[in-house]
Computed example of a mutant assay.
Amino acid sequence: MMKQKEFYIPFSGLGQGKHEFEYTINNPFFESFGYDEFNAADIDLHVVLNKMSTMLEFEMKAQGTVNVNCDLTNEPFDQPIGADLELVVKFGSEFNDEDDEILIIPHGEHQVNIAQYVYEMLVLAVPQKRIHPGVLDGTLQSEALKKLEELQPKEEKKESDPRWDELKKLLTDK
């Protein structure tokens, strides 16, 4: 995995208080993690670091689009995404990232890499089921949709069995 240099935030030279960072995330970012589900990505990330004497607080907000293939038709479309993540960084004797919201780094460290947290936040922001907006509103014309409609099971009107009808009456008679 390629290390994302721009996602290393050096906090040792910063004064206490809030500091802001802006990033534009494109497909090479996801490819560096070996993730190739997106055709393209254009996401703006805003990071606010609140440096305190004993810990660091990160607030990350992302907005943008990822181009993905529809699960029904395989047609590419831009899926809007938005995500928020809060991360607390504390100092301890050794590195520990077992908790999703608290990162513990050794006392001597002077920078934090937030790339893994950004990656996970953005990948989880994309819906599990990706459906082209044209499928939902009926404007997309596709061979795959025509074939799915063709293969859809036909509803048959079944004659009711008179024995069951008599039993159903028992349920409603009170």
Results as ranks from 00 to 15, higher is better:
53 S>V: 14
161 D>I: 09
132 H>R: 03
171 L>P: 00
153 P>A: 08
122 L>F: 09
145 L>Q: 04
83 A>W: 09
95 F>Y: 15
95 F>H: 13
166 E>P: 05
127 P>E: 02
161 D>P: 04
156 E>S: 10
54 T>L: 10
137 D>M: 09
83 A>E: 11
69 N>L: 14
33 F>Q: 12
58 F>R: 03
125 A>F: 02
102 I>A: 01
150 E>A: 14
151 L>C: 08
66 V>C: 05
44 D>N: 05
74 N>S: 14
7 F>A: 07
48 V>F: 00
71 D>Q: 06
12 S>Q: 08
51 K>E: 06
174 K>I: 10
65 T>Q: 11
47 V>Q: 05
36 D>Y: 15
107 H>F: 14
86 E>T: 07
110 H>C: 06
23 Y>M: 06
101 E>Q: 05
129 K>N: 10
39 N>S: 12
31 E>N: 13
130 R>E: 02
109 E>D: 13
89 V>T: 12
133 P>Y: 01
117 Y>D: 14
105 I>D: 14
121 M>R: 02
174 K>R: 10
173 D>A: 14
108 G>F: 13
174 K>E: 15
146 K>C: 01
117 Y>A: 13
70 C>R: 07
64 G>K: 01
27 N>H: 04
62 A>P: 09
17 G>E: 12
47 V>C: 07
101 E>G: 00
105 I>P: 00
27 N>K: 15
74 N>K: 08
85 L>F: 04
112 V>I: 15
172 T>F: 03
90 K>M: 11
150 E>M: 11
44 D>L: 01
96 N>F: 10
144 A>C: 03
136 L>C: 01
8 Y>F: 14
19 H>D: 08
122 L>K: 02
11 F>P: 08
139 T>K: 14
95 F>Q: 10
128 Q>C: 00
109 E>V: 14
2 M>R: 12
169 K>I: 01
52 M>P: 00
137 D>L: 04
91 F>R: 14
19 H>Y: 05
20 E>A: 13
75 E>I: 06
113 N>K: 02
160 S>V: 10
162 P>H: 03
117 Y>N: 11
173 D>M: 01
100 D>T: 03
52 M>F: 04
154 K>H: 12
105 I>E: 10
36 D>I: 10
